[in-house]
Amino acid sequence: MTACAQNVKGERSTYQGFALYSDIQYGPDKAHSFDVYTRSDFSNAPVIFMVHGGAWKMGDKKSDSVVKNKVKRWVSSGFVFISANYRLVPHANPVEQAQDLREALVSAQNQVYQWGGNPDKFVLMGHSAGAHLVGLVSGSVSDVTSIGGKPWLGAILLDSAALDVPLVMDSDHYRFHDQAFGRDRDFWYQASPYHQLRSDARPILVTCSSKRKGACDQANKFVSKANSMGIKASVLSRNYSHKGMNTELGADNSYTQDVEGFMSGLDSHVNRVVVGSEKLSADSETQTGPVRKLIQRIKERRAQREE
């Protein structure tokens, strides 16, 4: 498919009352596409760029577990939300998938003005295999700027247990790890976020399920290395299942609030959006219940700090 034949604008519809631009192509393969969830009143809004999981061989950008709670909460409060697809195993290996996502990110940054977003205010996010891929992408700013992209504000890795790929492959592991990473040890290092992390990385939050074997150990190891390199990074553990670490994010709970706390610290504009200063309309009564509750909680916390 040539660039001029690609669907760069997307098909417009609605989702949860928000504008949805579907299947915006960023490359020649059918899988090279992303969806944009936004509002008509947005201008220079911050952007969440989300990558689905699925053992590197399945999954989709439109899955409820990927978008439902996140769109409801964050588009309501003032974020553009972008959900990206990429080629899957066996059509692309994880290193190639990460490159797909770098190109998707650059394409989204170049076009986001038309959806009311700000290309300088991106937050990267991914779950499971998507968290591993976001770990590869976010591990080096120069790998994105070298192909025309902009630095992002930070990255959130949701419950990946494959941040150190050689460690995974040298231990008991699932068959899908063999399908994704093969037997080439050199490739394991190329595909390992822990080993590909560079000092120019932006702040990173790594969440992990305390119910999942190895997830928090790898999260802590990754964050320890990042901190030793001067990268601001932290771990957030929760007693959710692996699936819950994705689906519960965006619901009205302390997990969502702690992730939002990380986002708030990235940028003053993002902080204003998180606390709900950009509302659905001038009438505060149009805010959703969770947003009103979040605003009240943050106001109470600020008041306590000032006492």
Rank of each mutant, 00 (worst) to 15 (best):
R292Q: 12
T247P: 10
H242V: 09
Y255H: 12
D258H: 08
E260I: 08
I295V: 13
S281Y: 09
M245A: 08
A251C: 11
L236H: 11
L266Y: 02
R297V: 00
R238G: 09
V275P: 11
S237I: 00
V235K: 01
E285S: 14
L266K: 03
S264Y: 04
V274N: 08
P290H: 08
V235G: 01
Q296A: 08
K243C: 00
D267T: 09
E260L: 12
G289R: 12
I295P: 04
V291T: 06
G276W: 05
N253P: 06
Y255P: 12
L249T: 00
T286I: 08
N246Q: 08
K243V: 07
S264D: 07
T256F: 04
A251F: 07
S284F: 04
N239H: 04
T288S: 15
L266V: 02
Q296P: 01
E278F: 14
S237A: 12
M245R: 12
S284Q: 09
F262N: 03
T256I: 04
V274K: 03
L266C: 01
G265L: 01
Q257M: 02
S268F: 13
N246T: 02
V275E: 15
Q287K: 09
G276D: 08
G250Y: 07
V273C: 09
L294N: 07
T288G: 13
L294H: 13
S268E: 15
V275T: 14
G289A: 11
D283S: 13
G276V: 07
D283Q: 13
G276K: 10
F262S: 03
L294R: 14
T256Q: 02
G261C: 03
V259L: 09
A251N: 14
S237C: 00
G250M: 07
L280Y: 03
E260N: 10
S268N: 15
M245K: 10
V275R: 15
V291F: 00
T256C: 03
S241V: 10
